[in-house]
Simulated assay, not measured.
Amino acid sequence: MEQIRADCMKQRGFKYVAYVEPKRPEPDLSTYEAMKTYRQKYGFGVFAQFVDPKDPLTGSVETASGLDDPNRLIAQKLNASQLDAYNKAKDGCYGKAVKEVLHKKADSRLEGLMLQGGARDDLEEAEINGDSELVALIPAFADCLVAKGQRVPSAMLPTAMAKRGFDAFWDRLDALGDKESKGAPRDLTPAQARPYLDREIKAALEDLECGKEFYTRYAPKEASIDARVEAEYGPLF
């Protein structure tokens, strides 16, 4: 795909270097046991990025992929009108590569990511939210969490139940942000973030133990969906 994009950009009069981002390490969450190992160190995966920003499994900005993309430097040297033309050409060439290699239609990378996300959502709705056994496990899971003092919204679907903890701690992170910036802070020091991560790890392990039966069934299903979406769209679609 990248070579097709580079050739296409050259034909349109622009410099573009075929570049494939190194695949970012991803945590193994395919089994209950793997989830437990992850949560013992990273909790739900929210505050750990500030405690250990160089650990690629935290998803921190410092370990973000794409920072070494040579095309970023090319784009930075363009003036406003040149950059607009460059981006339009890049989107067009992206669409050409997607059509030729993946046999799909996407007129920009953003549209491609939305297409990929939609495919994932459809699979999760059918195979996870549509799994009657997973749905039946939620009441006992929720009751256990409430008994431990954790808040659980009512009538949650399996996908929402699995993401509940992450969402709750992301909300806590957002609350620490500057009201003017309206977003999560990016300047928490490891010492400032550590107490939040400790509470997050405790909550994440409680969530996992309360939902042991749930996650034993959920984890391999989610891993299967991840693998199939990547096989169809590529890891960097």
Results as ranks from 00 to 15, higher is better:
residue 5 R to D: 08
residue 7 D to E: 10
residue 10 K to H: 10
residue 11 Q to A: 15
residue 11 Q to S: 15
residue 12 R to E: 09
residue 14 F to A: 10
residue 18 A to Y: 07
residue 19 Y to L: 05
residue 25 P to A: 04
residue 28 D to C: 09
residue 32 Y to V: 07
residue 33 E to H: 13
residue 35 M to R: 15
residue 35 M to L: 04
residue 36 K to L: 03
residue 41 K to E: 04
residue 50 F to I: 03
residue 55 D to A: 08
residue 57 L to I: 11
residue 59 G to Q: 08
residue 59 G to L: 02
residue 62 E to N: 11
residue 63 T to R: 00
residue 64 A to G: 10
residue 65 S to W: 06
residue 66 G to H: 12
residue 68 D to E: 11
residue 69 D to W: 13
residue 69 D to N: 14
residue 73 L to D: 15
residue 73 L to G: 15
residue 76 Q to R: 14
residue 84 D to N: 14
residue 86 Y to E: 07
residue 87 N to E: 13
residue 88 K to D: 11
residue 90 K to W: 07
residue 90 K to T: 02
residue 90 K to G: 04
residue 96 K to Q: 12
residue 102 L to P: 03
residue 103 H to V: 06
residue 106 A to R: 02
residue 107 D to F: 06
residue 110 L to I: 01
residue 112 G to N: 01
residue 112 G to I: 01
residue 113 L to Y: 02
residue 117 G to S: 08
residue 117 G to P: 00
residue 119 A to W: 09
residue 120 R to L: 03
residue 123 L to E: 06
residue 127 E to A: 12
residue 129 N to P: 00
residue 129 N to L: 04
residue 131 D to Y: 03
residue 132 S to H: 10
residue 133 E to V: 14
residue 135 V to R: 15
residue 140 A to M: 03
residue 142 A to R: 03
residue 142 A to Q: 06
residue 144 C to D: 05
residue 146 V to W: 02
residue 147 A to Y: 06
residue 151 R to N: 03
residue 154 S to G: 15
residue 155 A to D: 15
residue 158 P to S: 05
residue 159 T to S: 05
residue 159 T to R: 01
residue 160 A to S: 07
residue 164 R to C: 07
residue 166 F to H: 09
residue 169 F to H: 10
residue 170 W to V: 12
residue 172 R to A: 01
residue 173 L to F: 13
residue 177 G to L: 01
residue 178 D to M: 06
residue 179 K to E: 10
residue 180 E to T: 11
residue 185 P to E: 00
residue 186 R to H: 12
residue 188 L to G: 08
residue 190 P to V: 00
residue 194 R to V: 05
residue 194 R to F: 03
residue 197 L to V: 14
residue 199 R to C: 04
residue 200 E to A: 08
residue 201 I to R: 10
residue 201 I to W: 12
residue 210 C to A: 05
residue 214 F to M: 01
residue 215 Y to M: 13
residue 216 T to W: 09
residue 223 A to S: 10
residue 226 D to V: 02
residue 226 D to S: 14
residue 227 A to T: 14
residue 228 R to T: 01
residue 229 V to G: 07
residue 232 E to G: 07
